[in-house]
Amino acid sequence: PTIVLKVSPEELKALEKAGVEIEKIEKNEDGELYITLTPEALKKAGFE
């Protein structure tokens, strides 16, 4: 199962800087950012 999270541009930068593997980055028509994370990326980021 993949996880989709709504993030701010600042959060996205912080995640990328931390080396979190982001599978997909999407922006909706309201300009909101959503990222898709794999279970492996979540484990690496410390989420179980």
Rank of each mutant, 00 (worst) to 15 (best):
P1V: 14
P1I: 11
P1W: 09
P1R: 11
P1D: 09
T2N: 13
T2E: 07
I3L: 06
I3T: 12
I3G: 02
I3P: 02
I3S: 04
I3F: 07
I3Q: 05
V4G: 03
V4K: 13
V4D: 03
V4R: 14
V4Q: 10
V4Y: 06
L5F: 08
L5R: 07
L5W: 11
K6Q: 08
K6G: 04
K6C: 08
K6M: 10
K6F: 07
K6R: 13
K6L: 09
V7N: 00
V7C: 02
V7P: 01
V7A: 03
V7Q: 01
V7F: 02
S8G: 07
S8I: 03
S8D: 04
S8V: 04
S8F: 05
P9T: 12
P9F: 11
P9I: 13
P9H: 12
P9Y: 13
E10H: 10
E10A: 11
E10W: 12
E11F: 15
E11I: 15
E11G: 09
E11L: 15
L12D: 00
L12A: 04
K13D: 14
K13V: 14
K13L: 13
K13H: 14
K13E: 11
A14C: 15
A14S: 11
A14M: 10
L15A: 03
L15T: 01
L15Q: 00
L15D: 00
E16Q: 14
E16P: 00
E16K: 12
E16R: 10
K17G: 09
K17E: 11
K17T: 15
K17M: 14
K17F: 10
K17H: 12
A18E: 07
A18P: 00
A18L: 14
A18Y: 09
A18D: 05
A18R: 09
A18C: 07
A18W: 10
G19T: 02
G19S: 05
G19A: 06
G19N: 07
V20G: 01
V20F: 02
V20T: 05
V20I: 14
V20C: 04
V20D: 00
E21N: 04
E21A: 07
E21L: 06
E21W: 04
I22R: 00
I22C: 03
I22Y: 12
I22T: 02
I22H: 02
I22A: 02
E23Q: 11
E23S: 09
E23D: 08
K24H: 09
K24P: 01
K24E: 06
K24R: 11
K24G: 07
I25M: 06
I25N: 01
I25P: 01
I25Q: 04
I25D: 01
E26P: 01
E26V: 11
E26Y: 11
E26R: 07
E26F: 14
E26K: 04
K27F: 15
K27T: 14
K27R: 12
K27E: 12
N28G: 13
N28M: 13
N28V: 07
N28R: 12
N28W: 08
E29H: 12
E29D: 13
E29L: 12
E29R: 11
D30C: 15
D30G: 10
D30V: 15
D30Q: 14
G31T: 02
G31W: 03
G31H: 04
G31Q: 04
G31Y: 03
E32Q: 13
E32I: 10
E32Y: 13
E32P: 03
E32C: 05
L33W: 11
L33R: 02
L33N: 02
L33G: 01
L33Y: 12
Y34E: 10
Y34Q: 07
Y34V: 08
Y34L: 12
Y34D: 02
Y34N: 05
I35M: 02
I35P: 00
I35D: 00
I35A: 04
I35L: 06
I35Y: 00
I35Q: 00
T36H: 11
T36P: 00
T36N: 03
T36V: 07
L37S: 05
L37T: 15
L37C: 05
T38R: 05
T38V: 04
T38W: 03
T38N: 08
P39E: 15
P39I: 12
P39R: 12
P39V: 11
P39L: 15
P39F: 12
P39Y: 15
E40N: 02
E40H: 03
E40K: 02
A41E: 14
A41Q: 10
A41G: 04
A41P: 01
L42W: 14
L42D: 02
L42C: 05
L42A: 15
L42V: 08
L42P: 02
L42E: 02
K43L: 12
K43T: 05
K43W: 05
K43G: 07
K43R: 08
K44S: 15
K44E: 15
K44C: 03
A45M: 05
A45K: 02
A45Q: 03
G46C: 10
G46W: 07
G46F: 05
G46L: 08
G46A: 06
F47Y: 12
F47H: 05
F47Q: 05
F47L: 14
F47C: 06
F47V: 07
E48L: 15
E48G: 10
E48W: 04
E48Q: 07
